[in-house]
Simulated scan of single mutants.
Amino acid sequence: MTSDSAAVNALDLSHFSLTRVLNEDTHSKTVYLLGTLPYSASNGGETRTEPALLIVERLHFTTAEANQLVAKRLTETGSTGQNDVYHWLRGRLRGYASDAADDEWDVKLTVVVPATEAHIRKYTRQERRMIRETPDIYQRVVLPYVEHLPKSRIHWLYNILDGIGEREHVLFNDPDPAHGFMLLPDSKWDKRTMESLYLLCLCHDRTIRSLRDLRAKHLPLLTNIRRQVGQVTSAKYGVPANQLRLFFHYQPSYYHLHVHVTHIQNTQLGGMTVGQAYLLDDVIDMLQLMDDYFQKCTLTYALGQDHPLYAALEEAGATADP
């Protein structure tokens, strides 16, 4: 699916009806809203009122505009892209739009419609607990869950890898099926503030779902990512490799191997915390020491109590004190 400006512009946010506020992040200046929105699929189907997840993120504030913030409200939106159920827009805020240049926008908007329970759960604030996932618990609890996830959950990702969606956003593509990957900006980045730079590497190998699947045979892929990403960011953004943080998440939010790339000055992302992030350099080093390290180790991480895996992990004793 290519970026569909007509479909995105058809989203009239004036008809968004708020159900509740799911969460708000004061560090990233982001609020997560659940509501409903009249929506018609791009194939010309009838318009229906669908659950919609609206993520509103304020872009970088300048000192000059600080005294105007309270009075501003969203007045205008423009499409920046679409992939599957994800729509991206930019917006202007009342009291400032008339003073802004045509190419300057105040907020970055993400609309997920129709929003599923999985989307809503992902962005809802929840209590978290530390999990100690042994190899046995992975085999008995986690792996069956991963294997039964519907492929539709990552349809948007396959759109990118297949060259159908977000083609204009791809910064680099090594098409090698075993060692190649795509690099593109993460939707969380405003694409202009270098210190909040956030990119995403999507591996072409569709057999690797998470850290647990990595072995020494994947080292050429991982070292290729480490080498190429720094070259791309240095050439395109003037950000050298030693100002980048490359890491994996475990548990990941979707089970297709991907690497997060952020600027070293970007310290506000919750996903970089101990108990979720695993540095690419450390993963490479572990695999060089032991081929099947991630099949034999116990992984300790934080998990929300509303995560679909939590109840089964708790029953298996993964939340108990060691």
Rank of each mutant, 00 (worst) to 15 (best):
M1L: 10
T2R: 14
A6C: 09
A7V: 11
V8C: 11
V8N: 11
L11E: 07
L13W: 10
L13H: 12
S14C: 04
L18K: 14
T19Y: 09
E24S: 15
T26F: 10
T30P: 08
T36Q: 11
T36R: 10
P38S: 02
Y39N: 04
A41R: 14
S42M: 13
L53E: 01
L54Q: 05
V56P: 01
H60R: 14
A64E: 15
N67E: 13
L69S: 03
V70W: 03
T75L: 02
S79E: 10
N83P: 00
Y86T: 08
Y86Q: 01
R92M: 00
A101D: 12
D106A: 01
P114D: 09
A115L: 01
A118S: 07
H119V: 06
K122P: 04
T124A: 05
R125L: 08
Q126V: 01
E127K: 13
E133N: 06
P135W: 05
R140Q: 09
Y145N: 06
Y145I: 06
K151S: 11
R153Y: 07
H155G: 07
I160Y: 02
G163N: 13
G165M: 09
E166S: 14
R167M: 10
N173A: 13
N173L: 12
N173R: 15
A178D: 13
L183K: 02
K188T: 09
D190T: 09
S196V: 12
L197C: 07
C203K: 07
I208V: 12
R209A: 12
R212C: 00
R212N: 01
R212I: 02
R215T: 12
N224W: 14
R227P: 00
Q231I: 08
S234G: 09
A235M: 14
V239K: 08
A241F: 03
A241H: 13
Q243K: 15
L246E: 00
L246F: 03
Y250R: 03
Q251V: 06
Q251S: 06
Q251C: 04
P252N: 01
Y254D: 02
V259Q: 10
V259E: 09
N266V: 05
T267M: 02
G270D: 05
M272K: 01
M272R: 04
M272C: 01
M272L: 06
Q276Y: 00
D282T: 12
Q288W: 13
L289A: 15
F294L: 00
A302E: 06
G304C: 10
H307R: 11
P308F: 05
A312E: 13
L313G: 04
A316V: 11
A316H: 07
G317A: 04
T319P: 04
A320G: 03
